Simulated assay, not measured.
Amino acid sequence: MTDASGLVERVRAALREVIDPEIGFNIVDIGLVYDVAIEEDGVARISMTTTTKGCPATNYLRDGAGEAAQSVAGVHWADVQLTYDPPWTPEMMSPAAKNYLGVA
């Protein structure tokens, strides 16, 4: 099998192509992706959240994450699970996202 850590990084890179339509920045750097794991059979397990439980973009983001992960060579299927534990906070954003959004 492909090096799992390399595959995780390629999946994370693909997830950076998924842009939150309300925030205008990618889901990895705004802190919505909590975990990416690759199983032996090429299944990508993604744990993610949304900024709020009632986020109108929830299905768009979940579907986008699954499609992005499945576009990576070596990933045969993506299982995207939503969680709100821990709840998302702006502190979860990367420095690049904070800079883009003007958050100190």
Rank of each mutant, 00 (worst) to 15 (best):
M1G: 15
T2L: 09
D3N: 15
A4T: 13
S5V: 15
G6Y: 05
L7F: 13
V8D: 14
E9T: 15
R10H: 11
V11G: 07
V11P: 11
A14V: 15
R16N: 08
I19S: 13
I19N: 14
D20A: 00
D20C: 03
P21V: 10
E22G: 03
I23C: 01
I27C: 11
I27M: 09
V28H: 14
D29R: 05
G31H: 08
G31F: 06
L32W: 10
L32Q: 07
V33P: 02
Y34K: 02
Y34C: 01
D35T: 05
V36D: 01
A37D: 13
A37P: 03
A37R: 13
I38C: 04
E39W: 01
G42R: 02
G42S: 05
A44T: 05
R45M: 01
R45I: 01
R45P: 03
S47V: 14
S47Y: 01
S47F: 00
T50P: 07
T51L: 03
T52E: 04
K53W: 01
K53T: 08
K53S: 08
G54K: 00
A57M: 06
Y60H: 06
Y60N: 00
L61C: 06
L61T: 00
G64V: 00
G64Q: 07
G64N: 08
A65Y: 02
A65T: 08
G66W: 05
G66P: 11
Q70A: 12
S71L: 04
A73V: 07
A73P: 14
V75N: 08
H76R: 14
H76K: 14
H76I: 10
A78D: 12
A78E: 09
A78R: 03
V80H: 02
Q81V: 11
L82T: 02
L82M: 12
L82Q: 10
T83S: 12
T83L: 04
Y84F: 15
Y84N: 07
D85P: 01
D85H: 10
P86W: 11
P86E: 12
P86L: 03
W88A: 01
W88G: 02
T89I: 03
P90C: 05
E91K: 04
E91P: 06
E91T: 10
M92D: 13
M93Q: 06
S94P: 11
A96S: 10
A97G: 10
K98E: 13
K98R: 13
N99E: 15
N99K: 14
N99C: 02
L101E: 14
G102T: 08
V103I: 15
A104Q: 13
